[in-house]
């Protein structure tokens, strides 16, 4: 076989390179650019070095947002994962009911984020919302625009409502892949329901559950739209999560430098966590999960 040796083939990857450059590299570099400069308007920029990074690291505001963010992610994971698994375990395995459940479960996943936000914003309003009004009528003091706890409960319940089905569907797929023989063997061995879960279902679901946890963690860590629509980060800063804070800083106050430094650090944290997840998962794969 005669092989033609030249480097023209590199031109074929050019369209992709251009696309990636415009969609990712240039915007990212702009952010990097802002993060190391200061401006006083008039499009005049001054070199600031790592000052913004230093300032942001000493800023309580970012640490508070990060703390709220971690609490939020931890709480929704702690609720959605067990709840999703529980739902999956109780779903019918086959037949028309199974299909019906699957479709019903996937409905919340199809609703756009800001619509979800709007739904819950209205749903929870004390004056006209079904939930808010009912609670108020029952004498429960619930007002997410004024009460920190009520605001937190609202955004957490909203996220659980929106995303538990994702965990449930993934767990369900994992459960479906377990051959019947395992359950039969367990019955013969007189294993209790808990042991069946612990030694058969959980190990077989471990792979998909890792994916579910990863997806839910990343998503919740970057959440913006829904809490913004519902609470706008309030009352006060009570539900100001990382990305809400970032947008306030960048667009509300137009502090480009600090916001850029903030977003780069945000990006690095997410990258680091993804890497940890990835490593854990590939190691699990190697062990044959």
């Amino acid at each position: 076989m005669n092989k033609t040796l030249n480097n023209k083939a590199w031109f074929l990857v050019l369209p992709v390179l251009v696309l990636v450059a415009f969609s990712a590299v240039i915007p990212l570099m702009t952010v990097v650019n802002y993060s190391v400069q200061d401006t006083f308007g008039n499009n005049q920029f001054f070199w600031a070095g790592l000052e913004w990074f230093e300032e942001m690291l000493h800023e309580d505001r970012m640490w508070n947002a990060l703390r709220r963010q971690l609490i939020f992610s931890a709480v929704i994971l702690a609720i959605e994962v067990p709840l999703g698994v529980f739902v999956a375990l109780n779903m019918p395995k086959s037949g028309a009911w199974s299909s019906f459940c699957l479709v019903t479960m996937s409905l919340p996943l199809l609703i756009p984020w800001n619509v979800v936000g709007t739904i819950w914003q209205i749903f929870g309003r004390v004056d006209i919302g079904l939930l808010g009004h009912t609670l108020a009528a029952m004498g429960i003091d619930y007002n997410y625009t004024q009460d920190t706890i009520a605001a937190w409960v609202t955004i957490i319940v909203m996220d659980v409502w929106h995303w538990t089905s994702l965990v449930a569907l993934l767990a369900f797929a994992g459960l479906k892949s377990i051959p019947d023989a395992y359950y039969q063997a367990a019955r013969i061995d007189q294993a209790s329901r808990w042991k069946v879960f612990r030694y058969i279902e959980l190990p077989k679901m471990a792979g998909v559950l890792m994916i579910a946890i990863l997806l839910r963690f990343m998503d919740s860590f970057m959440i913006y739209t829904e809490p913004f629509v519902v609470t706008g980060g309030g009352p006060g800063n009570a539900t100001t999560l990382l990305s809400i804070d970032l947008v306030k800083m960048a667009l509300g106050q137009f502090d480009l430098g600090p916001a850029a430094a903030f977003s780069l650090m945000y990006f690095l944290v997410i990258l680091a966590i993804s890497w940890v997840f990835y490593t854990v998962m590939t190691n699990l794969d190697k062990k044959g999960m």
């Binding site: 051959p179 023989a181 395992y182 030694y199 044959g288």
Partner: peptide
């Protein structure tokens, strides 16, 4: 099944991984 005190070996090995 559990009351019958039987043991069964299946086509594909069933072990608790």
């Amino acid at each position: 099944t559990a009351e019958r005190n039987i043991a069964q070996v299946f086509q594909f090995p069933v072990v608790y991984d």
